[in-house]
């Protein structure tokens, strides 16, 4: 079944440590003490997650800020957020 995350809320895992330095997000996950580095677009998505934007809003922002077709952006953003979830960096919760 397709994981429909559009209507779900994305939360930063409160247990992580993170900082944006020179437009790059550095994130440490607590369980494995691993340092993750996000690229420019990943960092922008991370900022939007920190601003508590849902996936629709994130896609809107990325479409407005980067010169790429919407379909690619939608696919990439969803995949990226699922990777973040898998690594324990974000939690995806169903909207009430």
């Amino acid at each position: 079944m397709k994981n429909n995350i559009e209507h779900n809320r994305i939360f930063k895992n409160e247990k992580i440590a993170s900082r944006i330095i020179e437009r790059q997000a550095f994130i440490v996950t607590p369980l494995d003490s691993t340092l993750h580095l996000l690229n420019e677009v990943g960092t922008r998505i991370w900022q939007l997650i920190e601003e508590k934007k849902n996936i629709e809003k994130i896609i809107e922002h990325i479409c407005a800020e980067y010169d790429m077709d919407r379909l690619t952006i939608e696919r990439d953003v969803r995949e990226f957020i699922q990777i973040l979830e898998k690594k324990g960096i974000v939690e995806i919760k169903k909207s009430a």
Binding site: I21, E22, Q24, F26, L35, H36, L37
Partner: peptide
Amino acid sequence: NIFEKFIFLTEKRNIP
């Protein structure tokens, strides 16, 4: 690696 990159970047740019 990412950690080395982080150390290099912060030392070079004097980020505490």
